[in-house]
Amino acid sequence: MRVSLTTHGGLAAAITRQLPPRVADTDQLSPEVAAELRGLIDAVRGDPPGRPDPAARDAMTYTIVVEHGPEPTTLTASDTAMTKSFADLLDWVERNAA
């Protein structure tokens, strides 16, 4: 399973939009860590995100693409509509992805 994170918007949008995605591949993770990642992804799938606040300015949006099986799954969230499950997954990807 391959997980990639791209970030958009924010005060530094001109910079963040030029950064490459951050990627984690479960083939390169220990079984325990890979299982932790799968658990975090499952939690996000069962916890749909809220609607971003239209009044927000400089907020960032996050797209996490999970490639596993025939169809990739895309998970998205923004700073103003962040579920705890997505925040946990985002934190994991930011700590572990290259």
């Binding site: 924010g10 606040d53 400089d58 700073d79």
Partner: peptide
Amino acid sequence: RGRHYNNAFWDGQEMV
């Protein structure tokens, strides 16, 4: 806000 968060924003009511 958050860990290693590279941003500041206005959420419509507050500055973060």
